[in-house]
Simulated scan of single mutants.
Amino acid sequence: MQPSTEFLTPEECAEVDQALLTSRERFSARVAIYALRTLKQIAQVNGVAITKLDPKQIEAWVYQDESLQTGIDREFRSFFAQLVIASLNPLQQAARATGVPIESLTVAQVIIWFEEQAKLNLSKITSDL
Rank of each mutant, 00 (worst) to 15 (best):
A60H: 12
D128T: 09
V100S: 03
V48T: 13
P101A: 08
A97Y: 09
E12Y: 00
L120C: 04
T38M: 11
E25C: 05
E116C: 12
P101I: 11
V110G: 04
I42D: 02
S4P: 01
D128L: 10
A29I: 06
T38Y: 01
P101F: 08
T5S: 15
T38H: 06
F27E: 10
A49Q: 11
A108I: 15
L91V: 04
D54L: 04
E59Y: 02
K40L: 08
A43P: 03
T9G: 03
A19R: 10
K124A: 14
V16L: 11
I125W: 11
K40N: 13
Q109M: 15
S127Q: 14
E25K: 13
F80S: 04
A19E: 08
A19P: 01
N89H: 12
L83A: 03
Q41D: 13
S4Y: 00
A35Q: 02
Q41N: 12
S28C: 08
L129N: 12
Y63V: 04
L8T: 08
V45A: 15
S67A: 15
A43Q: 05
D17N: 14
F114M: 14
A32V: 00
V48E: 10
S23W: 01
R30W: 00
D128P: 02
K124C: 05
A19M: 05
A86C: 05
R24S: 08
E66D: 15
T9F: 00
Q82G: 12
R77D: 01
T9M: 02
A60V: 07
Y63R: 11
K119V: 15
I72T: 05
Q41S: 13
A81M: 03
Q2P: 15
D17S: 12
L122I: 03
A95Q: 06
K119W: 09
L8H: 07
F79P: 00
Q82D: 14
A14Y: 03
V31S: 03
A108W: 03
A32P: 01
A94K: 07
L39N: 08
R24G: 06
K119L: 14
A19S: 09
S4Q: 12
V45K: 13
Q57A: 11
V110A: 10
L122T: 12
T126V: 15
L53K: 08
F80D: 06
V107P: 13
C13K: 09
G47S: 08
D128W: 03
Q44M: 09
S87M: 04
Y34V: 01
V62W: 00
S28M: 08
S67I: 04
Q69Y: 01
R77H: 01
D54F: 03
Q18G: 14
V31F: 00
R77C: 02
E59C: 03
R37N: 13
L53E: 05
F80R: 10
E25V: 02
W113Q: 11
T51I: 11
L8W: 06
Y34M: 03
L91E: 07
R74S: 15
F114H: 15
A14S: 10
I112L: 11
L122E: 14
Q82W: 10
S67M: 13
Q44L: 12
R96P: 00
A108H: 14
N89Y: 09
Q57V: 01
M1W: 06
A14Q: 11
S23T: 07
A19N: 09
A60P: 00
E12D: 04
E66K: 13
E103K: 11
A95N: 05
R30N: 09
V84G: 02
Q44T: 09
